[in-house]
Design a protein around this nucleic acid. Structure first.
Lengths: 123, 123
DNA sequence: CATTGTGTTACACATATACTAGCACATCTC
DNA sequence: GAGATGTGCTAGTATATGTGTAACACAATG
């Protein structure tokens, strides 16, 4: 899986890396059981420091997207905690939707946007 | 309108302040034409620095939620740019939905969550 | 047993951001 | 004129981010 980092972005590199891996899983380019490159390998490929990759991997582990095995590296392994996930999603969405609501975006327009994004996942 | 800041939060104070004002507008506690307290007054009330409030106000102005008049202070004034708003929302939602998608949250569960949030706005 | 590759940890350093603090200025209200 | 306002400036502290080097413990392989 190809990782692309925008060094001019205002988003931290480790966050970009996390997001790309999460998107990879959502779009099935990464599947449960797949292994990620080692921290050193990934760092070399992208051209960043090992610690930055390690930070991304560690956080992905904490959030339940991968598990880390000393022998095989990081393995895609989803830890489904739906209640917690829905709570976190809601916190995120409340502000995002409030911004749209202020700008006169209707409820149906949001539903349409959701469908649009989901359709892109189900490639 | 009462502003509450969590000083132990990992979110910056000026971001919390912005979000609360945006939520205030979305829930109609703040309406178009209402004035916000002056930067010094708001800073005193919350117990933070004037410049932190000024940063929040300036960003809210840039994002089109208020306009600033030297005579009257910050006034709630929505600048509706729907295309831009939808683009920004999509960028935000793509990652948020990907996380849910990984954790087996279904499309209908997301739609339900959206309705839930919108119902809270229409108080 | 020696080598290699792995995740992990520790320390040091540079840079950027967040927040606070104080000062000055032009403008507006009273 | 007196007071309040938004704005600009400098400066300091604290934290976050990214890099660099090194060392450790473990597993696989020769």
């Amino acid at each position: 899986m190809v990782i692309e980092i925008d060094f001019n972005s205002d988003e931290a590199i480790y966050v970009q890396l996390m997001n790309q891996i999460i998107l990879g899983i959502a779009t099935s380019r990464l599947q449960e059981g797949d292994t990620l490159p080692s921290v050193r390998q990934m760092a070399d490929t992208i051209g960043i420091n090992m610690h930055t990759v390690n930070k991304a991997y560690t956080l992905l582990k904490q959030e339940g997207f991968v598990s880390i095995d000393r022998r095989r590296g990081a393995i895609v392994a989803i830890d489904v905690d739906k209640i917690k996930t829905l709570e976190e999603m809601k916190e995120n969405l409340v502000v995002a939707l409030a911004k749209g609501c202020c700008k006169k975006v209707s409820r149906s327009e949001v539903h349409q946007l959701i469908d649009e994004i989901f359709d892109e996942y189900d490639l």
